[in-house]
Design a protein around this nucleic acid. Structure first.
Ligand SMILES: [Mn+2]
Ligand SMILES: [Mn+2]
Ligand SMILES: [Mn+2]
Ligand SMILES: [Mn+2]
Lengths: 220, 220
DNA sequence: AAAAAAATTTAGGCTAGGCTAAATTTTTTA
DNA sequence: TAAAAAATTTAGCCTAGCCTAAATTTTTTT
């Protein structure tokens, strides 16, 4: 049977909150992420467990079953492919596409997804640097580090963001930081952990700890 | 306030059933088109009237208000633009796109529609020959005639279909009839009104009355 | 112009997915 | 380790969109 829009959202959120270790997700965390109340979450968890999509024991938190994981990954695949479409083909900014993709990800047709993937040239990453699961459902999270873990003097490449909020992405735009940018850490301020960095060998600027915490980078 | 998926479908269907004269649409006709029961339709009509989207007096049938017409035309615009995208960009057949567009037409963002329209090069017609409303909401139905009204000896151009069912479209594919094809009526069988026609000056074939009734054509 | 038939609306219910308030269980703190 | 706090579940309600059965209105036939 088909899963509803709402069920798909729960599964996707459980996947995200579960992290790469697939740990238990709490009712309250889900209530927060779905912008509903804990009581409503409990109702839905019972339904998802009934359908075999999650492992749920009262008071114990939930994890995805293999089947639930599959569904979640399909939704993530669609979300990220649509984001690529919106940015690459329609000319949206990376700060504008999340909400629209949030709707498009629930359009059913398998064949649509595969034709879209083909049209886009089988992209591996979405506009925020997040990996796109392949048609078989394989999702490999590259292990990037956070900019706060980079030492003074190191040069790294910007590979993704942890925060997807438009305001954060726009802040990066104004700072001239984008996917692929080379970031050299020149200095770290002892007092507030802000960093002085140079972008692509050009402009130098200060980055707050808050920003550093949300930048995913890779040693080169 | 935003209109729901269901409300949008009602408005679109009322628009279609209302025809170019904007005549009253009956409860039963809506029940048939929405695949629901008359009682359910009545409920929804009261809600749409409440919102000022339709003119509704008990037992009298409904028409769209100006506001309702606007909403309906926006949905139609989205539906047809997405169909163009699916056929032109993703390579779907014209027989495969209706159901998918039926979902895509409810994705909200105005800006998405305009960017999509731009990406597609502002198409005037969808893959079935139906006119696409412009961004301002102008929808002009070209006045094509039905193939049954064409006399023997006339040559006409195929411009659209009345039936959008996949089986009908596939039948046309097998017959080599597509948008733009030139159809010359060679003979009309007195008994069953089937026609003998020649397509694009090449292949000759028989067309049943049922098919003729659903082909929109234009004198050249 | 009745009477019969058809169309439509009303009444009363159901499910999905929400909510608040109260009860229960688990976790933390003293 | 008992009490307090936090987390979670249960109970009871609500709205959107459906449904069936019964009542009402309109239309068609006699
Ligand atoms: Mn996103
Ligand atoms: Mn993304
Ligand atoms: Mn269609
Ligand atoms: Mn169409």
């Amino acid at each position: 049977m088909q899963n509803s829009f709402t069920e798909e959202n729960y599964l996707k959120i459980i996947h995200a909150l579960s992290g790469r270790d697939g740990g238990e997700v709490s009712t309250n965390a889900l209530a927060e992420s779905t912008a509903t109340r804990a009581a409503s979450v409990t109702d839905m968890l019972r339904k998802l467990a009934e359908k075999g999509l999650i492992n749920y024991k009262k008071y114990q938190g939930v994890t995805l079953t293999e089947q639930g994981e599959k569904v979640a990954i399909k939704v993530i695949r669609k979300h990220r492919l649509w984001e690529v479409f919106l940015v690459e083909k329609l000319g949206f900014g990376w700060d504008e596409v999340h909400d629209i993709a949030e709707e498009l990800e629930h359009i059913p047709s398998e064949i649509l997804v595969e034709k879209l993937d083909n049209f886009l040239g089988h992209p591996r990453f979405d506009p925020h640097g997040d990996p796109i699961p392949d048609a078989k459902g394989n999702l490999t999270e590259p292990d990037y580090k956070v900019l706060t873990d980079v030492h003074v003097g190191e040069k790294v490449r910007m590979m993704g963001v942890l925060d997807h909020a438009p305001s954060f992405l726009q802040h990066l735009d104004r700072s001239g930081i984008k996917l692929g940018s080379v970031i050299e850490v020149k200095e770290i301020n002892e007092y507030d952990k802000s960093a002085s960095v140079q972008i692509d060998g050009g402009q130098s600027l200060f980055i707050s700890l808050e920003v550093s915490k949300n930048l995913l980078v890779q040693r080169r």
